[in-house]
Amino acid sequence: MLNLVNKSPFERLAMESCLRVAPKGSAIVFLEDGVYAVTKGTAAAAKIQAAAEGSAIYVLGPDLDARGVDRERVMDGVTEIDYGGFVDLVVEHGTPQSWL
């Protein structure tokens, strides 16, 4: 199942809720303000790391660029995608669940 998280984990529970219920083998895309969740050294890092063991974690590149997040600040095990890659994921997994 494809999950979208577009809120900062420091403002909302969207990431936490998503990671809590998403079964192993899920795909999780961080976009918009959600991209802060996959940067190194934050209070959310341990949760992302644990999730990356069972699920595929993606981040939308244009949203990293917009927020000035250098690629070396993105956590290992997170796959960067562009809009085309995003569309491919939707085609592969079907309608996503948006954790608003």
Partner: peptide, 15 residues
């Protein structure tokens, strides 16, 4: 529990 709740979500055609 969260895991069962998530598994039920994964069975849906539409959420």
């Amino acid at each position: 529990p969260a895991a069962e709740f998530g598994a039920l979500m994964a069975q849906q055609d539409v959420i």
